[in-house]
Nucleic acid binder design. Sequence first.
DNA 1: GGAAAATATTAGACCGGTCGTCTTGACGTG
DNA 2: CACGTCAAGACGACCGGTCTAATATTTTCC
Lengths: 199, 199
Amino acid sequence: MEKKDTKAEIIVIGTDMISLHGYNATGLDAVLKSAGVPKGSFYHYFGSKEEFGLAVIDHFAERYDQRLDTFLNDEEVTPLNRIRNYLESGLARLTQNQCTKGCLIGNLGQELADQNERFRARLDDIFHSWKERFAACLQEAQRAGELAPELDTGVIAGFILSGWEGAVLRAKVMKSPQPLRDFIETLFTTVIRSRNLSP
Amino acid sequence: MEKKDTKAEIIVIGTDMISLHGYNATGLDAVLKSAGVPKGSFYHYFGSKEEFGLAVIDHFAERYDQRLDTFLNDEEVTPLNRIRNYLESGLARLTQNQCTKGCLIGNLGQELADQNERFRARLDDIFHSWKERFAACLQEAQRAGELAPELDTGVIAGFILSGWEGAVLRAKVMKSPQPLRDFIETLFTTVIRSRNLSP
DNA sequence: GGAAAATATTAGACCGGTCGTCTTGACGTG
DNA sequence: CACGTCAAGACGACCGGTCTAATATTTTCC
């Protein structure tokens, strides 16, 4: 029953530590010690550190998808406000950890995209799926007459993703959530203007 | 006269290697071998790897400032188009290296902001100075009647910086300049609209 | 039920690479 | 000659990921 518990435990702790210190800077020793798992066990559960890293990414992506579900599928709220709620919750979350960590996928992208093709491809997939979810929400907004219909939802979705990732990075460097707030505000007052404000 | 040449050489090579592989992943040995400088000399010029890293950042920032000068002070062009030219040139540059490297300051921010306070502070300064330069250019645009006067130039400048850094990250992960193109296009058609399009 | 076989888990050694130090020596200048 | 600057690279201490050999645990089967 607890057969996979140890492995899952390692992954959960690893996700935390990699979020905080990055992939290369996170030593196996530290993860295992923190998880109370002896060093020798590692290669029973994972083939290599690379496989472990991939497992951490998968775990994170899965959890994050659930988070997106709760916001982006919230029928109680108009499509545009779903996106807003999601961003605001991200702001709250970042503020809570003094703007450390940032976004795991973004962090690893910056660190590993040029260094390891398997990681890059996996991270690319995840970004792509996030963008698609935003795009779907934006389309709904257009159907509901909440968003100017001439906008290309795919492009705007990518724009939101870029802007958000960049704002998270700047928040981390500044140690202040200000960039996140500015991003949300500017996004909703200029880019995603409701249709009746268009010329 | 060539007293500082060796030191400068190390810094230039180090800038390249750190841009490509990050700070932690760049070994001193590799830098020195590539520069043809023996190990013993390194600690004559630098007190530690950290000091070396800081010197690399300074060198990069200085060079980058010149780049900003050529675009953002170009009197031949309207203020808004200066920003556009700068972004386009970044797009061209990234395209040229197959979207590797990205932005050194962004890379190091992601890697080291949570890890080393001296680095974080220095990188924060640089981001701040970049933002100020954008803001100044936007103010000029407002004075020239090129940009809606009700926009907060500081906020928009931060928005541009965030969006650009994020787009560079996504381009690196996707191995495609598409996010950069989409960012520029969306920025100039929605955020920075000339005043006569405002309601 | 209990021995034997298969599997799950662990301990700790190994190898390679890291940063930083140290000693030695060449060079040129005063 | 003496002395500061710089070249030179071997060395040490450490830490990283990896592997093999041994131990514990479960399963199988008579």
